[in-house]
């Protein structure tokens, strides 16, 4: 799961070290256009539903937070 999420993020933002960053959203490392690409890819790859209300720093600030968001939506 974590590897799959990491590869999705890496494809969208190849220059970001997702293991080191813990404030991806707060520090503006992922911008609004990146956010929607990430959300769309996660929805398609894991067949889950995400919506605009999920776009919060606590869900997007780190790789682990994004993994937790995906896990919380898996059936």
């Amino acid at each position: 799961m974590k590897e799959k999420v990491r590869s999705i993020l890496q494809e969208i933002l190849p220059d970001v070290d997702f293991d080191a960053e813990t404030a991806l959203f707060d520090d503006g490392i992922i911008e609004s256009f990146d956010v929607i690409q990430i959300m769309s890819e996660l929805m398609d790859s894991f067949s889950i539903d995400l919506n605009a209300e999920d776009i919060e720093p606590e869900n997007l600030n780190s790789l682990d937070a994004i993994v937790a968001l995906v896990e919380s939506r898996l059936p």
Binding site: I36, S40, A52
Partner: peptide
């Protein structure tokens, strides 16, 4: 309240 909800 507009851009994200529209896109998603």
């Amino acid at each position: 309240y507009l851009y994200y909800p529209l896109v998603l």
